Simulated scan of single mutants.
Amino acid sequence: MNYKKLIVESGKKMAGSGLTVETWGNISARDPETQLVYLTPSAMLYDTITEEDVIVCKLDGTVVEGTRKPTIEKDMHLAVYRSRPEVNAIIHTHPLYSMVYATQGKDIPQIIDEAAQVLGDVCHCTEYALPGSPELAENCVKALGTESNACLIHSHGAVCLGGDMNGAFKTATVLEVTAQIYYMIEATGGKPAGISPENIAVMKDFAKNSYGQDK
């Protein structure tokens, strides 16, 4: 697979998805065979990034290809990969409704079936830390734990994981839809009815082991 091309195409996809604005957010992919990580460059418009702009590094942060400055959240991406070996793609987004909860330091619960199947666990919000700091990376790893495929970065955005890039985009989309529904429920004075832990477990198992043509 051409991972540099994947990063370029994924950046354009994110820019057109409404999941971020301008140069905010960042994207990475890990090659499970070489364990090399491919990252977007810092502060470049996604529709201008070329394969030559993509940065390639080892899990310890050593850059092996690329002359651009990597995303400020490089250490966050690498820390998540080190803690979650099943994850091979990460998208850091700045979506509107998820940001409503990130700026309040609030979690987003699994209130719809899609969230129960895709998000893996409650989407926890981290404690606050400065962008690009080691503390932010540590907080994200803690908030994600071993099960969740998404977390909110306090006052900053969301981090969405996947076994591949399609999976990461699916996580990002389901998280934002869940946040929008949650916001609309609260805005109308309602409260989510909730899904039982037993049913959440059944749906997680279904999504992992049964859903799709290849399972």
Score class of each variant (00 low, 15 high):
Gly194Gln: 05
Ala116Arg: 01
Leu78Thr: 08
Ile195Ala: 01
Val141Lys: 12
Ala137His: 03
Val80Ile: 15
Ala116Gln: 08
Ile153Ser: 03
Gly167Pro: 15
Thr93Phe: 05
Glu198Ile: 07
Cys123Asn: 06
Val177Ser: 12
His92Arg: 11
Leu96Cys: 09
Phe169Pro: 06
Leu136Tyr: 13
Leu136Arg: 04
Pro95Phe: 07
Met184Glu: 10
Gly162Val: 01
Ile153Tyr: 00
Ala115Glu: 01
Pro85Tyr: 04
Glu147Tyr: 08
Gly132Trp: 09
Ala201Thr: 11
Pro85Leu: 07
Cys123Ile: 11
Leu78Trp: 05
Gly190Pro: 04
Val87Arg: 00
Cys160Ile: 07
Asn88Cys: 06
Lys204His: 11
Ala102Thr: 04
Ala79Ser: 08
Asn149Asp: 14
Glu114His: 02
Gln180Arg: 13
Ala137Arg: 10
Gly157Lys: 12
Gly120Thr: 00
Glu176Asn: 09
Val87Met: 09
Ala207Tyr: 15
Glu176Phe: 00
Ala168Thr: 10
Thr103Val: 13
Val177Glu: 12
Gly145Trp: 14
Ala201Cys: 12
Ala207Arg: 15
Leu130Trp: 11
Gly167Asn: 04
Glu147Phe: 03
Ile200Ala: 14
Leu136Asn: 05
Asp121Leu: 01
Ile72Leu: 15
Gly120Pro: 02
Thr173Leu: 14
Tyr97Cys: 09
Lys208Asp: 09
Lys208Tyr: 11
His154Arg: 14
Gly167Trp: 14
Ser196Val: 08
Val80Gln: 13
Thr103Trp: 02
Val100Asp: 00
Thr93Arg: 01
Tyr183Thr: 03
Thr178Asp: 00
Val177Asn: 12
Glu186Asn: 09
Ala137Pro: 02
Tyr128Thr: 06
Ile195Ser: 01
Glu138Tyr: 11
Ile91His: 05
Lys204Gly: 14
Asp205Asn: 14
Ser196His: 01
Lys142Leu: 09
Ala129Asp: 13
Glu127Gln: 15
Tyr183Phe: 12
His77Leu: 05
Ala129Trp: 03
Val80Gly: 05
Asn166Tyr: 14
Arg82Met: 04
Gly145Arg: 01
Pro95Lys: 06
Cys151Thr: 03
Ala172Lys: 10
His156Ile: 02
Ala116Phe: 09
Thr171Leu: 04
Ile111Glu: 05
Ala207Asp: 12
Glu186Met: 12
Val177Phe: 10
Leu161Phe: 05
Asp75Gly: 10
Thr173Asn: 14
Ile185Gly: 08
Gly145His: 00
Glu198Asn: 03
Glu186Phe: 12
Asp205Ala: 15
Gln180Cys: 11
Asp107Cys: 02
